[in-house]
Simulated scan of single mutants.
Amino acid sequence: MNFHGILVPIVTPFHDNLSLNISGLAKLTEKLIDSGVTGLVVCGTTGEYYALNEEERKTVLMTVSKVAKGRVTLIAGINDLSTEGAINRAEQAKQLGYEGLMLSPPPYSLPDQQGVFAHYQKVASSTSLPIIMYNFPARIGIEIEYDTVVKLAEIDNIVAIKESSGDFSRALRLLQTSFENFEVICGCDDQPVDFFFWGARSWIAGSGNVFPVEQVAIYEASVQEDWGKAKQIMNEIYPAIYSMESGNYNQKAKAGCFKSAFKVGPVRLPLTNISDSERDEFLSLITIEGK
């Protein structure tokens, strides 16, 4: 599974009546592929996985797979409140042709580190697919602590961690750890140049729905060690990314899809749509001069 480069947790388009927009999802998948991204994460947080029923979830996974299979890397988000639920979602992803999985600790239950380890160990033992762990304590309520990451990295099909804590000191410690066949992925949209400078080779970015071309260019500049160019592009998109990271992330990812040129509709409850004034203020940040 190649996950080096930009992987976009794709938004799920809805019609105004909140039904799935399947044709819109297929077109968005095609546009992201054309933008040069390495892969797509389907049914992730940015895709509002928690607001999909099981039939809709299957439809979303199948739609993206039909368009993208064999063209980019396909990763399925398999978060669930229970370990057994995550195992079932891993099996579904494999049956639908996905190459990898992304998994956080279970939300709400607040497991201790022994429970976190056992959760990942059991899911990993149930599937042959590679797993990217997802550390996002602001959403999940607990952290995958450093020592737990080190232990889990020894499991063959746990291959990476998406680090979204926002704590770059923690990220740097992980990046400087001598793992075998395990990588640290940037999961903070305001820190990719820092991650790439210290050796990360992947960025999983919900803001990739807004700036896929620019984010691919940042990655390519980093590969060439052209840090001046990487910083320049990051400076251009940073105001919008800062706005997203400051609140209403999913709503802004949808409002700004392809710099607002591609319409993907509203969000579903429990999220509510941003006001017209907040939307206009955000959209004023995503027009890059000369582009």
Rank of each mutant, 00 (worst) to 15 (best):
residue 2 N to Q: 12
residue 2 N to Y: 04
residue 2 N to K: 15
residue 3 F to G: 03
residue 4 H to R: 15
residue 4 H to P: 00
residue 4 H to E: 15
residue 5 G to P: 13
residue 6 I to V: 15
residue 6 I to E: 02
residue 7 L to R: 03
residue 7 L to Q: 10
residue 7 L to W: 00
residue 8 V to W: 04
residue 8 V to Y: 05
residue 8 V to P: 12
residue 9 P to S: 06
residue 9 P to H: 04
residue 9 P to C: 02
residue 10 I to T: 13
residue 10 I to K: 12
residue 11 V to Y: 03
residue 11 V to C: 15
residue 11 V to E: 06
residue 11 V to G: 08
residue 12 T to L: 12
residue 12 T to Q: 08
residue 13 P to R: 04
residue 13 P to Y: 07
residue 14 F to D: 02
residue 14 F to G: 02
residue 15 H to M: 11
residue 15 H to S: 05
residue 16 D to F: 03
residue 16 D to R: 09
residue 16 D to V: 01
residue 17 N to D: 15
residue 18 L to Q: 12
residue 18 L to T: 02
residue 18 L to C: 08
residue 18 L to A: 07
residue 18 L to V: 05
residue 19 S to M: 13
residue 19 S to W: 01
residue 21 N to E: 06
residue 21 N to S: 15
residue 21 N to Q: 03
residue 22 I to F: 02
residue 22 I to W: 02
residue 23 S to T: 10
residue 23 S to M: 03
residue 24 G to T: 01
residue 24 G to M: 05
residue 25 L to K: 03
residue 26 A to V: 01
residue 26 A to H: 03
residue 27 K to H: 07
residue 27 K to D: 15
residue 27 K to S: 14
residue 27 K to A: 13
residue 29 T to R: 04
residue 29 T to L: 03
residue 29 T to S: 14
residue 30 E to T: 08
residue 30 E to A: 06
residue 31 K to P: 09
residue 31 K to T: 04
residue 32 L to G: 10
residue 34 D to R: 00
residue 34 D to Y: 00
residue 34 D to I: 00
residue 34 D to C: 02
residue 35 S to G: 14
residue 35 S to M: 12
residue 35 S to V: 10
residue 35 S to A: 15
residue 35 S to T: 08
residue 36 G to K: 03
residue 37 V to R: 06
residue 37 V to P: 11
residue 38 T to E: 15
residue 39 G to R: 03
residue 39 G to Q: 07
residue 39 G to A: 07
residue 39 G to P: 10
residue 40 L to P: 14
residue 40 L to V: 04
residue 41 V to A: 05
residue 41 V to R: 02
residue 41 V to T: 11
residue 41 V to K: 03
residue 42 V to I: 08
residue 42 V to E: 04
residue 42 V to M: 07
residue 44 G to M: 01
residue 45 T to D: 14
residue 46 T to F: 09
residue 46 T to C: 12
